[in-house]
Design a protein around this nucleic acid. Sequence first.
DNA 1: AACTTGTTTGTAACGATTTCAAATTTGGAG
DNA 2: CTCCAAATTTGAAATCGTTACAAACAAGTT
Lengths: 137, 137
Amino acid sequence: MKNIIELLKENNIAPSMQRVKILEYLQNHKTHPTAYMIYQSLADEMPTLSKTTVYNTLKTFVEKGILVALTLFENEVRYEYNTEPHIHFKCTKCGKIYDLDKSFDYCTNDLIDGHKVLEHYVNLKGICKNCLVKAGA
Amino acid sequence: MKNIIELLKENNIAPSMQRVKILEYLQNHKTHPTAYMIYQSLADEMPTLSKTTVYNTLKTFVEKGILVALTLFENEVRYEYNTEPHIHFKCTKCGKIYDLDKSFDYCTNDLIDGHKVLEHYVNLKGICKNCLVKAGA
DNA sequence: AACTTGTTTGTAACGATTTCAAATTTGGAG
DNA sequence: CTCCAAATTTGAAATCGTTACAAACAAGTT
Ligand SMILES: [Mn+2]
Ligand SMILES: [Mn+2]
Ligand SMILES: [Zn+2]
Ligand SMILES: [Zn+2]
C-alpha cells in the first residue's frame, strides 16, 4: 500500500483532502466503483464534497495513470487502482465484478489483420462460483 | 441477405415500414451504429420517424435475437446484425470499428477460477492498417 | 360505424457526466 | 504575518444517451 501523499506529489498533484480521500477509497475498495458510488461513500465524512470534485479528481488521476477507467458492461464508467493488466468477470446473478489473471496467448500478438493492437479489454460474463454453490444447493 | 419481411414474420414481429427500414439499415451498414446514427440516417426518407421508435424497435429486435447490442468502449450502445461471435477492434485515429475473427483459445475454457463463463466480450484498441499507412507516409 | 389491438409519435423525465462561474482554499512573495 | 494570484472546490445548469408515458394513429373485427 503506497503512501498516497507521496504518490500524488510524484505525479505533480497537490494532495488536497478530497484527492487523498478519493484515492484512499480506491486503494481500499477493489470493487470497481462508479464515480457516484465513490461520492456516496465519502459523503458522510465529507458533507460538503461535491460530485463535480469526484469527477474532476478521477479524471485527473486517470490522465496521470494512477487510475484506470473501465467501460465494462453497462453504460457507466468504473474506476480502479492501476495495477497489472487483468481481465474482468461479471456475475449475472449477484452483479459482482471479479478480477482475473490475463493469461491468454493471442494477447502477445500485437498485430492482427494488419491492425496494431495497443490495448485489450476482455470482459466475461457468467455465474460466479459463489452463486453456483447457492444454486446447486 | 435474408428477406427482411420473412425474417420479421418468423419472429412474430409485424413488418411495419419503420421496422423494415431499420432492420434493412443494419443489414446494409455493418458499422455498429448507435440508435441515433440509425435515426439520423433514416430521417431523410422518413421525416416523421421518431427517435423513440428507433429505440423501441432496436430493443424488440435484440429481445428476439435478431440484433445484438454492444457496449464497446464508450458509453453508448451499438447495434449489429446478429452473426457469428467475433471480436471488435477500434482504431483510435479514425474511430472505425472493425470485426475480427474470434480465434483465441482460452475461449473454449468455460470455467475460469471456478466461475462459469457464459459470454465473452473482447475489445481491442489501436491503430488500424489504413491509419498506419497514412502515418508511415 | 364502433371497438380492439398494436404501433408510432412527441414530450417529459431520467441518470451519468460535463460545463461553467462563483466561492473557497492554498502557497508563496513581500 | 498579510496579501494576492493561482489552484481547487463547489453547486447549479446544461448536455447526452436513453426511457417512460400518454396521446395519436393505423388496421382488423364485429
Ligand atoms: Mn479490475
Ligand atoms: Mn461486430
Ligand atoms: Zn455471483
Ligand atoms: Zn484508422
